[in-house]
């Protein structure tokens, strides 16, 4: 099973007259940390729900772990841990009791049965930093604790694939850092992580591959390193900016005080050129595109903004 962990072809979902997801071709490979980016309302959650067999596709196919969904959900889902649109737990029960119940649901599968349940529950709680929780009901939990509990529930069966929708929602910076470390650690042990988020920074810090959804369409899907590719310009900061600008002439495409953006094939040669001309260079680096630029370029706008449509009459 090398290659694709999630693969969809022309995946489409219509709710009445609204097309929420439109012909999406996802390709998530084994070992990826895949960032699924999109504005609010762009169809991320609907796509995730289709992958998990919660929402039935109008058209198109979805394969998860090499088997088609939702037909093979009973073989696929035991190997998948998921957090969909916020955690869900039985409010009146404690976190531990919740995990015990969820662990008892469905077929026991490879993870084992009742005898090893306490150990699994304990390990999952330990992993997400909830080992010390008491008997308080989930009702009394903070949003961050609920989020951690949801994650623990996703980890119960040592999944091969984690599908996480906005997993850091409600966590403080420290918590976000912990969860990021946890996910990266899991990824190192071979777990593929599919991370859906509208937070560019989160995706940029963790992911190896990125897919961008815009109004239900997948407008971009590539390795993050490729997207981050050099723009062919070099950023130069020098106190002798005037002299450098005269020296380089037309190659300077943009100037902002001491900072120049120079079109140059080889930054090393540019540096020598500047230094030999007596310019004191304090910073010189090839310019890379930021993920934000890439995403804004590829997508047309935010999903929750509704501008007035002028009607021609």
């Amino acid at each position: 099973m090398s290659g694709s962990v999630i693969r969809t072809a022309g995946l489409t979902k219509r709710f009445g007259r609204v097309t929420a997801v439109d012909g999406v071709d996802l390709d998530v490979r084994d070992g990826d940390v895949y960032g699924f980016l999109g504005a609010n309302g762009s169809g991320k959650t609907t796509t995730v729900r289709m992958l998990l067999g919660l929402v039935l596709a109008t058209r198109g196919d979805a394969e998860v772990l090499g088997l088609s969904m939702p037909r093979h959900r009973h073989e696929v889902l035991p190997q998948v841990g998921a957090l969909v649109e916020g955690p869900g737990a039985y409010d009146q029960l404690s976190g531990r009791a919740n995990l015990r119940l969820f662990d008892a649901m469905g077929r026991a599968g490879a993870a084992g049965g009742r005898r090893t349940r306490e150990r699994r529950v304990g390990e999952a709680l330990e992993r997400v930093g909830l080992a010390g929780i008491d008997r308080r009901p989930v009702r009394a939990y903070s949003l961050g604790m609920r989020q951690r509990l949801g994650l623990a529930s996703a980890l119960l069966r040592s999944p091969r694939l984690l599908v996480l929708d906005e997993p850091t929602n409600g966590l403080d910076p420290q918590g976000i850092h912990e969860i990021r470390e946890l996910l990266l650690e899991l990824n190192r042990t071979g777990v593929t992580v599919f991370l859906s988020s509208h937070l560019l920074a989160e995706i940029e810090q963790m992911c190896t591959r990125v897919g961008v959804l815009d109004r239900g369409r997948l407008v971009l899907q590539d390795e993050l390193s490729t997207l981050h590719g050099p723009t062919g310009r070099t950023e130069v900061v020098t106190v002798d900016a005037d002299r450098a600008a005269t020296l380089l002439g037309d190659a300077v495409e943009h100037r902002e005080g001491d900072r120049l953006l120079v079109r140059a094939g080889d930054p090393g040669r540019l540096n020598r050129h500047l230094v030999e001309a007596g310019c004191r260079v304090s910073l010189l680096a090839p310019e890379r595109r930021s993920l934000e630029d890439v995403v804004l370029e590829a997508s047309q706008g935010t999903g929750d903004r509704r501008d007035r449509q002028e009607r021609a009459s």
Binding site: G53, H74, P78, V80, V84, F102, G106
Partner: peptide, 8 residues
């Protein structure tokens, strides 16, 4: 949704 993706 969490019950259904256990899967039940």
């Amino acid at each position: 949704r969490y019950v259904l993706i256990r899967p039940v």
